[in-house]
Design a protein around this nucleic acid. Structure first.
Length: 276
DNA sequence: ATCCTATCCTGGCTGC
DNA sequence: TGCAGCCAGGATAGGA
C-alpha cells in the first residue's frame, strides 16, 4: 500500500522523466479514476499543458501544469492500495489494469494503473483545494517533538487511528503506523492525551526515522502490488518488526507478536514491548 | 469530539 | 482440483 515512503520513491523516480514534458494526448479507460470530471473535461484541462514540477504531499503525487509559462492547475494522484505509476515508451504494454494514459512529447507515456479501481488521478485548477486539509509533513522541519506533544495533548483519540488520520499527520498509513508505534514502545490503543512529552519526543523521532529508512529502501512491497516505476519491489518489508508478523517472535523480547483490529484496521504489536 | 459502519473493488487465500 | 465466500485496505460520508 503506497504510503509516504512509496509515494516519495515514485515521485523521485518519475520526476526526471516528467518535468518539462508536454501532454499531447490522453486515453481514459475508467472514468471514475478521474474523480468526478468527465473524460472530455479532463482532456480539455490537461492536453497541451506542460508538466512543470512533480512533487509529493502526504500520500498524494502532484504534477503542476503550465501553459505558456502560466499555471494551469495540477494533476493530483492518489494510489490508495493498488495504484501504480509508470513512464515508459508509448509502445509499452501496460497490461489489463491501465486506467489513464497521458501521452507525452518524447514518445513516452505516463501510465496510471490500478487493479482495484480505488486510485484517483484528478485534475484541479488549484491543488490546495485537494491538499488543504492535510496535516503536517512528518519529515518537515516543523514536525518537532514539541509540536507532536501539543497535537497529541489537544486530542483524546487512540494513537493508531490518530496516526492514520491524514488531517492529523500526512502520509502515515497502516504499515508505518504499526512500525513507528512498536519502535516507540507505545500501545496502539493508548489515548493521545495520556502521552507525555518524553514519549511524544520518542514517537516523533521513531516516525521520522522509520519513514526515512523506508525511503532509503524504496518503500515496502509487503503484498504483490507496490512496485517502483522501474518495476522493482521495495526492500523495507525485510525490516518490519511487527507488520504482518502475527504469531512470530518479537525481535526485541522474544514474545509473540499479535494482531488486533483497531478502527477496522489490522494492527500489529508486541504486547510486552508496547504497554498501555 | 470521537467513534462506528458502509462503500468502493478484486486478487488471493481459506476451507470444504 | 474446483469453487464459493471472505478479507484487506485509504479515504470519505453519514449516523450514533
Amino acid at each position: 500500500m503506497p504510503e509516504l515512503p512509496e509515494v516519495e520513491t515514485i515521485a523521485r523516480l518519475i520526476r526526471p522523466r516528467l518535468e518539462g514534458r508536454r501532454i499531447e494526448g490522453c486515453e481514459v479507460r475508467w472514468t471514475r479514476t478521474l474523480g468526478g470530471l468527465s473524460r472530455p473535461a479532463f482532456e480539455r484541462a490537461v492536453v497541451g499543458a506542460r508538466l512543470s514540477r512533480v512533487w509529493r504531499r502526504g500520500k498524494y503525487l502532484v504534477a503542476d501544469l503550465e501553459s505558456r509559462g502560466r499555471s494551469r492547475g495540477a494533476l493530483v494522484g492518489h494510489l490508495r492500495m493498488t495504484g501504480r505509476v509508470h513512464v515508459e515508451p508509448t509502445s509499452w504494454d501496460p497490461g489489463p489494469y491501465l486506467k489513464v494514459r497521458l501521452e507525452l512529447d518524447d514518445d513516452t507515456s505516463f501510465y496510471f494503473i490500478d487493479v482495484r479501481k480505488f486510485a484517483r488521478l484528478r485534475f484541479t485548477p488549484e491543488p490546495q483545494l485537494l491538499l488543504g486539509s492535510l496535516g503536517p509533513e512528518p519529515l518537515s522541519d516543523g514536525f518537532t517533538p514539541a509540536f507532536l506533544a501539543d497535537s497529541l495533548r489537544s486530542r483524546r483519540r487512540m494513537l493508531k487511528p490518530l496516526l492514520l488520520d491524514q488531517t492529523f499527520l500526512a502520509g502515515v498509513g497502516n504499515i508505518y503506523a504499526d512500525e513507528s508505534l512498536f519502535r516507540a514502545g507505545l500501545h496502539p490503543l493508548t489515548r493521545s492525551d495520556r502521552v507525555g512529552p518524553a514519549r511524544s519526543a520518542r514517537l516523533c523521532a521513531e516516525i521520522r526515522s522509520t519513514l526515512q529508512e523506508a525511503i532509503g529502501r524504496e518503500g515496502s512491497s509487503f503484498d504483490t502490488f507496490y512496485r517502483t516505476p522501474e518495476g522493482n519491489p521495495g526492500g523495507y518489508q525485510d525490516e518490519f518488526k511487527v507488520y504482518g508478523r502475527a504469531g512470530k517472535p518479537c525481535l526485541r523480547c522474544g514474545g509473540s507478536i499479535v494482531r488486533i483490529v483497531v478502527g477496522q484496521r489490522g494492527t500489529h504489536l508486541c504486547p510486552r514491548c508496547q504497554h498501555r
